[in-house]
Simulated assay, not measured.
Amino acid sequence: MCDTAFVHNDQLFDRIADALVEVGYIVLPQALPVSLVDQLVARLHALDDEDFKRAGIGRQDDFQIDTSVRRDRIRWLQQEHAAEVAFLKWMDELRLALNRRLFMGLMDYECHFASYGIGAFYKKHLDAFKRPAPLLQAPLQISPLQAQPSRVLSTVLYLNPDWQTGDGGELRLYDEADALVLETIAPEYGKLVIFLSEKFPHEVLVAKRERHSIAGWFRVSGPM
Rank of each mutant, 00 (worst) to 15 (best):
V34G: 08
K130I: 05
F200R: 01
F103W: 13
F200V: 02
D108Y: 08
K199Q: 13
Q60M: 08
L20G: 00
E84Q: 03
D127H: 07
P29R: 15
F121A: 06
L32A: 02
A55F: 13
Q60C: 01
L182I: 12
E183L: 08
A179L: 13
G166H: 00
A42L: 14
I118R: 14
T184D: 12
D127E: 04
R211A: 08
F13A: 01
K124T: 15
N9V: 07
R100K: 13
I65H: 10
G105H: 12
W163Q: 11
P149M: 03
A128K: 12
T184K: 15
L173I: 11
L102V: 02
V34D: 12
E210H: 12
K123G: 12
D49G: 11
W163P: 09
E203F: 01
F103T: 07
D178Q: 03
P149C: 04
T155M: 09
H81G: 05
S197I: 04
N160G: 05
D3I: 14
Q146Y: 08
L28M: 08
L44I: 04
A82K: 12
R151I: 05
L180C: 14
S150E: 12
G190A: 02
G166C: 03
K199S: 12
H8L: 10
K208Q: 11
E80T: 04
R75H: 14
V21M: 09
P139L: 10
E183N: 09
V156D: 06
D178I: 01
Q30G: 00
I118N: 02
M91Q: 15
